Simulated scan of single mutants.
Amino acid sequence: MTNDRTRNRTTTLRAGAATLALAVVATLPACSGSGGGGPHAAEPRPAIAVAPASGGRAVPVDRKVTVRTTAARIDSVRVTAPGPGPLRGTLASSKESWTSAGRLAPGVTYDVLVRATTSGGKRLTEHTTFTTAEPKRTFVGEYHPDKGTTVGVGMPVSIVFNKPIRDRASVERKLGVTASPAVEGAWSWMKDWSGRDRVDFRPRSYWKPGTDVTLRMDLDGVDAGGGLYGTQNRVVRFRIGESVVTTVDTARKTLTLRRGGEVLRTIPVSTGKPGFETWNGTMVVLEKTPSITMNSRTVRIFGPEAYNLKDVKWDVRLTTSGTFAHAAPWNEGKFGRVNGSHGCIGLSTADAKWFYDHVSPGDPVTVVNSTDTVQVNNGYGAWNAGWADWRAGSAL
């Protein structure tokens, strides 16, 4: 049996519980859900993420550099490395991501600097570095003329590569020739006499005496195709000397040398006999040697026409295949009268010494009234190509 005091206490407790329940319900926000995503949820923290990241393994050259931002927009991305220079890329329209274009250069360390701005105007900066893997296959170019030399008005810039070049356009883009005074010129590709890939630059006409020429080779990291990469950066400056131009007339059997446009001497010579005619066209002095041995086997002459001449004096080389202007005392009596050589330009010993002393590498020697024009890759035969044909040899 419950007394009045107990009944009153029970009623009071129930009323208090109901009041507490109402109070709890009253504190719940209207339309509340279970996700906790109310107006006071934390906002994303502004950040910049760069890949590849610093401190990782060597990066393959086919990787892309990517930049992504959180709660910020990209203002600038700079990716640079010694040699290859800046790496270009594309910024998304949202300005929240950037992706590099083209391949990375091998074996170099890239420096990445990113700047961004949050919606509130706060500036963000991220600076990282990464290193690319070393190339497995590389190439270099052997160039002429050499740095600091003075050469004749007919000297082209010539580069012979030690590996086959599949992507000639990519390589040619990284080669440059400038001159003071300026010239119109062009590169042209060919196979060197050795069979290797080669590219030469020549002006439209002979260089002007006194011209300063600069060759720039920015080949470090250049992909020449098939994973073959360049390793060379060179700046080569040389100078064009005075105009020394020689004409050899095989019909008149004379050699005429002009310096600065004026005739210095006309010398009687003996050029190639029938079946061994001297190349027609323009050749360029390659080198000079005071004495050499000439053996016919080196130019594939055998049998009754074979020869082995020792201590041949005052030799001016004109082609890779073996054309020289040199002393030929065994042809005494033929100079100016009979063409009796195996393709070389023979002179008396005294005249050969005079010619040797008056020409330099790069001086053009033009043979007229002969047969079979010298090929552009046989020494420096660039002047035997018409200008349109020469320009057509460019890869660009």
Rank of each mutant, 00 (worst) to 15 (best):
V338S: 06
V183R: 15
G37K: 03
E126P: 00
V248R: 02
V65P: 07
W189N: 13
G281V: 06
G340T: 13
N162I: 07
T298K: 13
T246Q: 05
L124P: 11
P364Y: 04
P181W: 09
L228K: 08
V160A: 10
P84I: 00
A306I: 04
R300I: 01
A328P: 07
R9A: 10
F302D: 12
A15V: 08
L91A: 05
R63M: 08
R216Q: 11
F161I: 06
P106T: 04
A116V: 04
F201P: 03
L286H: 07
Q375M: 05
A186D: 09
R166F: 06
P268G: 12
V245C: 00
V160G: 01
D212C: 01
P52T: 11
A51V: 13
V284Q: 10
V376S: 05
A49W: 05
R166M: 07
K64Q: 14
P268R: 10
G336R: 05
R265K: 15
A18I: 11
T178N: 08
F139N: 07
V236N: 04
G275D: 06
V367A: 01
G226W: 04
K191G: 12
G381V: 06
L22W: 00
A30P: 04
N233I: 03
N384H: 07
S54E: 14
S205G: 11
R391S: 03
S170A: 15
D75N: 15
A392E: 05
T231C: 01
C344T: 09
L215H: 10
S100I: 11
R137I: 02
R78P: 01
P361M: 04
Y307Q: 08
R259S: 12
A49F: 12
G381D: 07
R317H: 14
E142Q: 12
S170M: 11
A182H: 05
T10P: 00
G38Y: 12
R73N: 10
T282Q: 14
P361A: 06
P304A: 10
H144C: 00
M217E: 15
R7P: 00
S76T: 15
M155N: 12
L124E: 10
T10L: 08
T66H: 04
T323F: 03
S94T: 14
W207R: 02
R300F: 09
F335N: 07
V67Y: 04
D218Y: 13
G148D: 09
F238W: 03
T231K: 09
G195N: 13
G37V: 02
T366P: 07
V151H: 02
P60E: 09
D351S: 05
P39F: 01
V236A: 03
D223V: 06
T366Y: 03
L257M: 15
P84N: 00
G83H: 02
R115A: 11
T69G: 05
V316W: 04
A395I: 03
K273S: 10
V365A: 09
R252Y: 02
K288S: 08
L396M: 05
T117Y: 06
D372M: 01
I301A: 07
A306E: 15
M294W: 05
V376P: 09
V79C: 09
S341G: 11
P304I: 07
V312A: 15
R258F: 03
G33Q: 13
T129L: 08
A382I: 08
V108L: 11
T6C: 00
T254F: 01
A251T: 14
R68Y: 00
A30M: 04
F161C: 07
I74K: 09
A251Y: 10
